[in-house]
Amino acid sequence: MIWKRAVTLEALNAMGEGNMVGLLDIRFEHISDDEIAASMPVDERTHQPFGLLHGGASVVLAETLGSVAGYLCTEGEQKVVGLEVNANHLRSVYSGRVLGVCRALHTGGRHQVWQIDIYDQHSRLCCSSRLTTAVG
């Protein structure tokens, strides 16, 4: 197990209240020994003007997953902040919910690198993102 903090899905979802995570209805769905997953709706909150999932919304989901995963890999008063995020948008999504799955590529003492893949309701890869965080 890579997580150093004990957590439940209920606690993760409560963290989203009163911020962008809650506003976009991002819901943590799954946590295992080495990955974490959350879903997000594809609707008027996350659409771009042409009626499909906004790339920025995909990045919000990716950064949410990577930042929370990074926090779970720290201890005590340590904090995690994003340094760099990128996203390759591979497939358009018009409705439903997307699922982001986050896995660690590197969990060092000063930096972390997270791979976040976002899938549509048919399990097709829609976005591949990578987040680098600093641990302080």
Rank of each mutant, 00 (worst) to 15 (best):
L24W: 07
G66M: 00
N13T: 12
Q121I: 00
Q121M: 02
I36G: 03
S128T: 08
A87W: 09
V68M: 07
M40C: 09
C127G: 01
E63Q: 07
F50D: 14
Q115N: 15
G100Q: 00
R110D: 15
E77K: 08
E84D: 15
A38G: 06
S39K: 02
E29F: 01
S129R: 03
K79S: 14
H54G: 13
K4W: 08
L12D: 03
H111M: 14
H106R: 13
P41R: 06
S129G: 10
V21Y: 03
S39T: 13
I31L: 06
D33Y: 11
K4S: 06
D33V: 12
Q78F: 03
G16V: 03
Q78M: 11
H122C: 05
R91L: 08
N13V: 11
T107I: 02
E63K: 11
V42M: 01
R27P: 01
R124T: 08
T133R: 02
A14N: 08
R103M: 10
C127S: 05
G82R: 00
L90A: 12
R91D: 01
L61N: 00
D117R: 00
A62N: 02
S128P: 05
F28S: 09
Q78P: 05
D33M: 09
V21D: 02
Q115V: 12
G22Q: 10
G136D: 01
L90T: 11
A57F: 04
S39Q: 06
S67H: 06
L105Y: 06
A37K: 12
N13H: 14
L131N: 06
G82A: 09
I31Q: 06
L61T: 00
G18S: 12
D34G: 03
A11N: 07
G18L: 07
G96L: 05
D117K: 01
S92D: 04
I26Q: 09
V80N: 01
A37M: 13
H111R: 09
R103A: 10
R91T: 01
G16A: 11
S67N: 05
D117S: 03
A37I: 07
D43I: 06
R97A: 15
